[in-house]
Simulated scan of single mutants.
Amino acid sequence: MNTRDIANTLVELCKQGKNAEAKALYSDEIISVEAFAPPGANREVKGLAALQAKSQWWVDNHEIHSAAVTGPWPNGDRFIVGFQYDVTHKPSGQRIKMEEAALYTVENGKIVREEFFYASGA
């Protein structure tokens, strides 16, 4: 698949709530970079297993009330996707609305890097 195909597939799977299935689009050597380090973790994780663990932490610690996905916006071997969430952080009970953009880089038909950017106040 080319970058546009991967971008469209990722967005469609996320819109359907099939984020776990989207991991098939990722390289085994994926690098995932958050804008800020999650509590007790690093900003950057490497490898598909580490990415899946990070995703599981998110699911385990957040009740998702609603989610929306916008995009993709492709440019060469990269594309951006927007995410909006209404979630409750389970440990604190705090309900928040989050907005983030993710920049994905594609090489050899797989996503090799994802970087997250958060709206101020998130």
Rank of each mutant, 00 (worst) to 15 (best):
A122S: 09
D60P: 03
V69L: 11
E12W: 05
R4C: 11
A50H: 03
Q84Y: 07
V112L: 11
Q84S: 09
N2I: 05
P72N: 12
I64K: 08
A35T: 01
P39M: 02
P39H: 06
V112D: 04
F117V: 05
L103S: 10
T70N: 02
F79R: 03
A7T: 11
T88W: 15
F116V: 06
Q16W: 02
W57K: 07
V87Y: 12
V59E: 15
I96D: 14
N8C: 13
E114G: 01
Q16H: 10
L51E: 03
N108S: 03
A119G: 10
Q16N: 03
T105C: 10
L10I: 05
G109A: 01
H65M: 08
P38D: 04
L13C: 09
D28A: 00
T9M: 12
V106Y: 07
R95M: 08
A122N: 14
H65R: 11
R113G: 00
Q94K: 14
A22I: 02
W73N: 04
A35Y: 02
A49P: 04
F36R: 00
F83G: 06
T3V: 07
H89S: 10
V33T: 15
Y85P: 09
E34H: 05
A22H: 05
N108E: 10
A24M: 09
V106N: 04
A50Y: 00
I80E: 00
R43K: 06
A122C: 11
A49I: 09
S66A: 13
S27F: 12
N2H: 00
Y26R: 01
A20T: 14
G76H: 05
P72T: 10
T105Y: 13
L48G: 04
D60Y: 08
K46A: 13
W57L: 14
T88K: 08
S27M: 11
A101F: 15
G17I: 04
E34K: 00
V33F: 09
P91C: 14
I111M: 07
Y104D: 01
F117M: 05
